[in-house]
């Protein structure tokens, strides 16, 4: 049955292919990791006001993750969310598929060049403040598939990453350790930055 479409699907294919090639050409140098929290170690003697402390507790213990689950590591995040390893103890059980309603993007699985523009678009749609966790060896460096013609060798070429969780796949305890590291990092991130 011939269906009249408003636009042709093959034009769509060509446009998307152009986006993929453009992203691949631009993603040569990785983004620097946001590590200003390390310098805060030296300025330990700054006192937090009580308002900042409350806001800080609120931010840290109610991070809502966005589900971006390409491959196998996804099942370890799901295990971490299920009843045995439960990450709702940390306030994170609200897994939001929509990036507009999430603060944290957990990328769990291999990212390929075909998927990269979609991933960048999801990251751009999240509102500040936002954080990114790279989970598993494939997101850190390409993992077991490094050298392949279609795998991104480390997603820090496409989005800036806050916490890396190594493993293939990391155990749910490792995932929870990654979240606790992220919480410590968020605690150091002051609301009003004093330079």
């Amino acid at each position: 049955m011939e269906i009249e479409k408003a636009y042709s699907l093959s034009d769509y294919d060509k446009r998307e292919a152009a986006q993929i090639e453009a992203l691949k050409a631009a993603a040569i140098e990785p983004y620097p990791d946001p590590v200003e929290w390390l310098e805060e170690e030296i300025k330990r003697n700054v006192l937090l006001t009580s308002t900042e402390h409350l806001i800080d507790l609120g931010k840290r213990f109610s991070v809502w993750p966005n589900t971006f689950f390409p491959a196998c590591c996804a099942f370890e995040v799901i295990s971490a969310a299920a009843s045995r390893f439960d990450f709702s103890r940390f306030g994170m059980e609200v897994l939001r598929p929509s990036p507009r309603q999430a603060d944290l993007m957990i990328i769990a699985g291999t990212v390929t060049w075909k998927l990269a523009p979609a991933m960048r678009r999801v990251y751009d749609q999240m509102a500040e403040p936002k954080w990114v966790i790279a989970m598993g060896a494939c997101t850190i460096s390409g993992g077991a598939f490094r050298g392949s013609y279609s795998v991104v060798p480390g997603i820090n070429r496409i989005v800036p990453v806050d916490v890396y969780i190594p493993g293939c796949p990391p155990r749910p305890e490792g995932v929870i350790n990654g979240f606790m590291t992220l919480h410590r990092k968020i605690a150091k991130d002051k609301l009003i930055k004093k330079d």
Binding site: D13, E16, K114
Partner: peptide
């Protein structure tokens, strides 16, 4: 007859023996 796992406009056919990969 169009590409299925790689994107449209990709140059080359990867499984051929003359497609060179940089292995780690």
């Amino acid at each position: 007859m169009k590409r299925i796992v790689l994107w449209e406009g990709y140059q080359g056919h990867p499984l051929r023996k003359d497609f060179i990969l940089d292995v780690p």
